[in-house]
Design a protein around this nucleic acid. Structure first.
Length: 424
DNA sequence: ATTGATGATTTGTC
DNA sequence: GACAAATCATCAAT
């Protein structure tokens, strides 16, 4: 600013002739610019009170009502056209999809902290599948983290949206004093704002969905990561399987019981693991019985022992001298087993003695039958077909229609390379 | 690295 | 919904 005078005075004698006009003219212009700059510099200070004053002045202007009416008329015409162009847009399918997914994943939707806590507690007290439940809780922790972030962000957006909306509405209301603004227009504006914010929300939802998907792929899909059952678990399952060989379909309760006994992972929900196991076992056993012969013998023998021991408690005066499986099994000849079987049938059918008793005996019979078929394998087909009538014992023809253990192999040649199984 | 065993999932049927 | 069958994917021994 103070350069101007210096500039002026630095060349005093240069332009003699035009000194008068030129100097005064330039001086004035520069003074104007200076004023303008000054105004610009102070405009922020003015804007608050001075603008308010001006606005007030305008509102009080005598021409104002007339002008306002004119504006209203103009507006009337344009609003019509605007109203025509304005349409209700349906809910975005993309957004709906995201919403549904978030709901399904438990990110949005009702808080279920109590539920998950209860589940965790149950898993803990159940004492089963420590590693899997740990994995699961890890997953849940991550999920709830995502959930929390999502909610705080959403809330932030919501708040910002509301703030902005009220701000705009105030502004519009204020302006409506000087220019005609219908409530409809305000509403429209609010809609526009909401749409903008919802598009931001959609981005949030999108990224949340992505995060959840990644989490899923890292944890839940890792459920495919196989952990072999421990020996004890397989043993228990095998025991059940081979002692119910004629009908290896454990009931819900049985499955639950087995799952509990096996202490297999938390995935035992609804005994699905058991179902898997029995499904696999059935199919694989049936597919290649020879391969399972040894195992079958082992378990059959083992359960036969316990069965024999158990029954020796009662009327059956079996000497406890030899807990040898072969011995006890061999002690039953064919007719005997048949009788026993028949008695079991009648017992099952007639009496209310309690399901467990029947099932117990039944499993013993299964086991014994198996052992007998193994030990007395020399008379093959005849014995097998005569020994028990499969149709009678099981309600499910499918399993029994498949090759029966007794009729297929003899133990000596069984395990190794009996069947040239092209099936595998 | 290969391979058999095995738990889990998918697909189709009833 | 349960099951069988096929298939996938991993484990574990070699």
């Amino acid at each position: 600013m103070d350069e101007q005078p210096r500039l002026m005075h630095s060349h005093p004698g240069h332009a003699h002739m035009h000194e008068g006009t030129g100097a005064t003219d330039g001086d004035a212009r520069k003074q104007d610019i200076g004023d303008i700059l000054q105004q610009i510099m102070t405009i922020t200070d003015q804007s608050l009170d001075e603008a308010q004053a001006r606005k007030h002045a305008l509102n009080c202007h005598r021409m104002k009502p007339a002008l306002f009416n004119v504006l209203c008329e103009v507006k009337e015409k344009t609003v019509l056209s605007i109203r025509g162009a304005q349409e209700e847009e349906p809910p975005d399918p993309q957004l709906m999809r995201l919403d549904n997914m978030l709901l399904a994943e438990g990110v949005s939707g009702p808080e279920k902290g109590g539920g998950s806590a209860a589940a965790a507690a149950a898993a803990a007290t159940g004492g089963v599948g420590s590693d899997n439940s740990v994995e699961h809780s890890d997953y849940r922790a991550k999920l709830s983290q995502i959930r929390q972030i999502y909610h705080t962000e959403l809330e932030k957006y919501e708040q910002a949206c509301n703030e902005f909306t009220t701000h705009v509405m105030n502004l519009l209301r204020e302006q409506s004093r000087t220019r005609p603004i219908s409530p409809k227009e305000i509403e429209r504006m609010v809609n526009i704002i909401h749409r903008k914010f919802s598009s931001i929300q959609m981005q949030l939802k999108q990224s949340t969905c992505e995060a959840v998907m990644i989490l899923r792929s890292r944890f839940l899909d890792a459920r495919r990561k196989r952990r072999n059952f421990n020996k004890q678990a397989t043993e228990i399952l095998n025991e059940y399987f081979y002692s119910h060989l004629s009908n290896p379909y454990p009931s819900e309760e049985a499955k639950e019981e087995l799952a509990k006994k096996c202490a297999i992972t938390v995935a035992q929900v609804h005994g699905s693991v058991c179902s898997n196991w029995f499904g696999n076992k059935r199919i694989r056993y049936k597919k290649n019985i020879g391969k399972f012969q040894e195992e079958a013998n082992m378990y059959a023998a083992r359960t036969a022992v316990s069965a024999a021991n158990a029954s020796s408690h009662g009327s059956q005066a079996n000497s406890p001298s030899t807990p040898n499986s072969a011995g006890s099994a061999a002690s039953f000849n064919m007719s005997n087993s048949g009788d026993l079987f028949m008695s079991v049938q009648s017992l099952n059918g007639d009496s209310y003695q309690g399901a467990q008793v029947g099932a117990n005996v039944q499993s013993q019979v299964d086991t014994l039958r198996h052992v007998i078929s193994q030990t007395g394998g020399y008379s093959e087909g005849l014995t097998a077909s005569q020994m028990y009538s499969p149709q009678g014992i099981n309600t499910n023809g499918a399993w029994q229609d498949a090759p029966t253990p007794s009729s297929v192999t003899s133990p000596t040649e069984g395990p190794g390379s009996v069947h040239s199984d092209t099936s595998n």
